[in-house]
Amino acid sequence: MPTLFAYVGAALAEIAGCFSFWAWLRLGKSPWWLVPGMASLALFAWLLTLVDSNAAGRAYAAYGGVYITASLGWLWAVEGLRPDRWDGIGATVCLVGAGIILLAPRTV
């Protein structure tokens, strides 16, 4: 369960941090939006170190599925665009792949 919380927290922190840059460059917001955005991106990186994995690359690869799903949640909650059926199918495929990467039995 701590891995799930680390991944969900990392996804929210990464999306929020990246959105601060989007808001500044694409929505004309103040450059001050970058200050909490940078802190959020640092939090994202730290949270990924809490994932129970023997290799950083494997932890990052599995995180990809969580990030994609969280991004669709952001699309709906923050941007007001409801994900469609294809978004849901794609997110499900990504989460299954992430689960395989993270939970597969390893001999090494």
Rank of each mutant, 00 (worst) to 15 (best):
F5V: 09
V8I: 15
V8R: 00
G9D: 11
G9Q: 02
G9E: 11
A10S: 13
A10P: 04
A10Q: 09
A11M: 02
A11E: 08
L12F: 15
L12E: 09
A13P: 00
A13L: 13
E14D: 11
E14N: 10
A16Q: 03
A16P: 04
G17P: 01
G17E: 11
F19L: 14
F19H: 12
S20A: 15
S20M: 12
F21G: 06
F21N: 07
W22Q: 12
W22V: 14
W24E: 06
W24Q: 05
W24F: 13
L27Y: 13
L27S: 12
K29P: 00
P31E: 14
W33G: 07
V35D: 10
P36T: 06
P36V: 03
P36M: 10
P36Y: 02
M38T: 13
M38V: 14
M38R: 08
A39C: 12
S40I: 01
L41A: 00
L41S: 02
L41F: 07
A42E: 11
A42N: 02
A42Q: 04
L43N: 06
F44P: 00
F44N: 08
A45L: 12
W46L: 09
L47E: 08
L48F: 11
T49A: 04
T49G: 06
L50I: 01
V51N: 05
D52N: 14
D52M: 10
D52Y: 09
S53W: 03
N54S: 14
N54M: 10
N54C: 02
A55S: 14
A55K: 08
A55I: 02
A56W: 12
A56R: 08
A56H: 13
G57K: 10
G57V: 09
R58I: 12
A59Y: 04
A59E: 10
A59H: 07
Y60M: 13
A61N: 11
G64Q: 07
G64A: 15
G64L: 13
G65W: 07
G65Q: 05
G65D: 04
V66C: 12
V66Y: 13
V66L: 07
Y67Q: 12
Y67G: 08
I68W: 07
T69Q: 05
A70E: 00
S71G: 14
S71A: 15
S71M: 12
G73A: 14
G73P: 00
W74N: 11
W76G: 04
A77M: 12
V78T: 10
V78M: 07
E79T: 02
E79W: 07
E79K: 00
E79H: 03
E79Y: 06
L81E: 14
R82V: 03
P83F: 06
D84M: 03
D84W: 04
W86G: 04
D87H: 15
G88E: 07
G88R: 05
G90K: 03
G90C: 06
G90T: 08
A91R: 00
V93T: 09
C94M: 13
C94E: 00
L95A: 05
L95Y: 00
L95I: 08
L95P: 01
L95R: 04
L95H: 06
V96D: 06
G97K: 05
G97D: 10
A98N: 03
G99D: 03
G99W: 05
I100S: 03
I100P: 01
I101G: 03
I101E: 05
I101C: 06
L102T: 00
L102A: 15
L103G: 02
A104G: 09
A104S: 14
P105A: 05
R106L: 09
R106K: 13
T107S: 08
T107V: 10
